[in-house]
Design a protein around this nucleic acid. Structure first.
Length: 577
DNA sequence: GCTATGGATAGCCTAGCATCCCAATGCTA
């Protein structure tokens, strides 16, 4: 699908236009890019079936942009983009990823210092060349260096949410071969780590060579690093590498256990085997030369005297000790979620109407879906004011009535995602908050406060009797921004006292709370909710990412309020049906 | 460049903050 490639080009054109100080066009290209990114249909199909006119049906795409899409599909390039690139051959994506660096700065840095990429930038900043440029100073130079440091720390890793769709596509493709008996992802993908270095896939098959050949001929491969009779390694268009190993079925379990890791978990399990007079490796569990287990992971763990350990727990952070004493937690299941409480509608700049969201929720078989639009302080997101919230309440009531007549077992709830102001107050009147089914509050501004002030700010919001949930409680954006400075233990303590629920935000680059914080919350007896923060129907599927982090954080069904049926859920908000 | 409507033209993308230079610019949510 060319959607993503074209979207990327449009985002870059938007940046080039901003450099040239062109008004409004950047916004148009940015919108078209966003629209293509979330489009589930293949643009190429749309174009083949209906030409330019069909392309214009895509939101944010008009005559001009439609023609550019067609140009790309026909020639593999967009002339205007090539011209921009020629005039200023810089790696915009790379430079723009540094926090604090935007299009105008990229332009000036190229103009004065011929900075083209991250390497040039770091060299210039370290040599102290940037601080002397007009409109730049020592502080800016220091911020740039910090931004680069942050990028380096996270470099070479991809978001779980970016990786999973590609992995399932590969698995689906390989499953089509009748020779494939068993297949599974391994490594950090299987453990659902928030970021992934590369992807490992294991297969058991009767004809390994055929499977490998088929694998290396899949669409979307840009490079084959190596290909042997039982193993191949490739790079996908998206930039990450995938390894496939094919092995005999009788070793599949032990190989899966070995390649799933983590390394620390494996070291501990091998030690355990040695203590029992056994040997554990990727080929099986052995007593002397005799193989006593290996076909399934379950029998591998049992041979070591352990209960089966879910992949998400295998980090050697106590799971082995727990499995020995049969004290493993019963962690939440991927099917346990009964509804999503953080969905944005087109009332505040989301893509879909509340009715469309309700239909999608019914499709997933949810029992409830919560509309939580931004509130008035966030003007850029068209945040709702008190009056609009009341009006939205009327629409939701009508939709619920309609759902009833359709015999749907689904209820639309009205929440909001209000803003926690720097002093900890909420940007919506109490009287109106009281009329909503529940209230989410989150920090969306002034994120660089000192630890004490930020902690106090959030605590004050939690103490507001109308606030039920704190959204993305630590504010981090993976690979872009660290958590804000907070005393998380103190926040947990107050959350427990006030009965405030902390969100596990499932958006691929948030995953906030993260796994280790979830585990702390579980230990502190603080309840959590797994939400997607969807701005588009396509985002509803992110729930899986949030659940995976909850599992990594040892959370059970009882720790997560939206595993509960509607009636119980509302009790957490002190509301009844 | 897109969208909405007066069908050729207006309106779109705001507000707070940091930085750099002492008013203006650019970034971020």
């Amino acid at each position: 699908m060319a959607n993503q490639e074209i979207a990327k080009i449009f985002s870059e054109i938007a940046l080039y236009l901003e450099m040239a100080d062109v008004a409004f066009k950047p916004y148009a290209y940015e919108r078209a890019a966003l629209s293509l990114e979330t489009l589930s249909e293949d643009v190429e199909n749309i174009y083949k079936q209906g030409g330019i006119e069909a392309l214009k049906e895509i939101p944010g795409v008009g005559e001009g942009i439609a023609k550019k899409i067609a140009e790309y599909l026909k020639t593999g390039r967009i002339k205007e983009y090539q011209q921009f690139k020629k005039k200023m051959p810089v790696n915009i994506e790379e430079l723009n990823a540094v926090e604090g660096i935007g299009p105008k700065i990229i332009r000036d840095l190229y103009k004065h210092l011929k900075i083209k990429d991250l390497r040039d930038l770091e060299k210039a900043a370290k040599a102290g060349k940037i601080r002397n440029l007009p409109h730049f100073g020592g502080k800016t130079e220091q911020n740039i260096l910090q931004g680069i440091e942050f990028l380096k720390r996270t470099k070479g890793r991809f978001l779980l949410g970016e990786i999973l769709p590609a992995v399932s596509e590969i698995l689906e493709n390989l499953k089509k071969l009748k020779e494939v008996q068993r297949i599974s992802p391994a490594g950090s993908v299987r453990r659902m780590k928030e970021t992934i270095g590369d992807v490992d896939i294991l297969a058991a098959a009767s004809n390994p060579k055929k499977v490998i050949n088929y694998f290396t001929s899949l669409p979307g491969i840009v490079k084959i690093w190596g290909q042997g009779p039982t193993k191949a390694s490739i790079r996908l268009q998206q930039g990450f590498d995938v390894d496939l190993r094919v092995l005999p079925e009788k070793e599949f379990g032990s190989a899966l256990q070995y390649f799933t890791g983590s390394k620390e978990h494996n070291i501990a399990t091998r030690m355990l085997a040695i203590n029992k007079g056994l040997k554990l490796n990727e080929y099986g569990v052995f007593r002397g030369k005799k193989m006593i287990a290996g076909e399934t992971e379950k029998e591998v763990y049992e041979a070591l005297g352990l209960f089966y350990i879910e992949p998400e727990l295998r980090e050697n952070t106590g799971e082995i000790e727990a499995a020995l004493e049969s004290k493993l937690p019963k962690i939440i299941n991927y099917k346990d979620i009964k509804g999503d409480l953080h969905v944005h509608s087109n009332w505040n700049g989301g893509a879909n109407s509340i009715e469309e969201i309700a239909e999608a929720a019914q499709e997933i078989n949810y029992q409830y879906i919560g509309i939580a639009d931004h509130t008035k302080f966030l003007r850029i997101e068209h945040g709702l004011d008190e009056k609009q919230l009341l009006k939205q309440r009327e629409e939701i009531n009508e939709i619920n009535y309609k759902l009833k007549t359709k015999n749907y077992n689904l209820k639309v709830l009205q929440g909001c995602e209000a803003n926690i102001m720097p002093d900890g107050s909420i940007d919506i009147e109490d009287e109106i908050l009281a009329q909503l089914d529940y209230v989410i509050a989150g920090v969306h501004s002034n994120m660089k406060m000192d630890k004490e002030k930020m902690t106090e700010r959030i605590i004050r919001a939690m103490e507001n009797p109308h606030v039920d949930i704190i959204s993305h409680p630590t504010g981090r954006i993976i690979q872009r921004r660290d958590e804000y400075l907070i005393d998380f233990d103190k926040i947990l303590k107050v959350a427990k006292e006030t009965g405030t629920i902390l969100e596990i935000n499932s958006f691929p680059n948030r995953l906030d709370l993260k796994d280790t914080n979830i585990r702390k919350a579980v230990a502190a007896g603080v309840k959590m909710v797994i939400n997607t923060d969807s701005h588009h129907l396509d985002h509803l599927r992110f729930i899986k990412l949030g659940i995976s982090q909850a599992r990594r954080g040892w959370a059970g069904k009882k720790d997560i309020i939206n595993t509960q049926p509607l009636e119980n859920l509302l009790k957490f908000f002190n509301k009844t049906i």
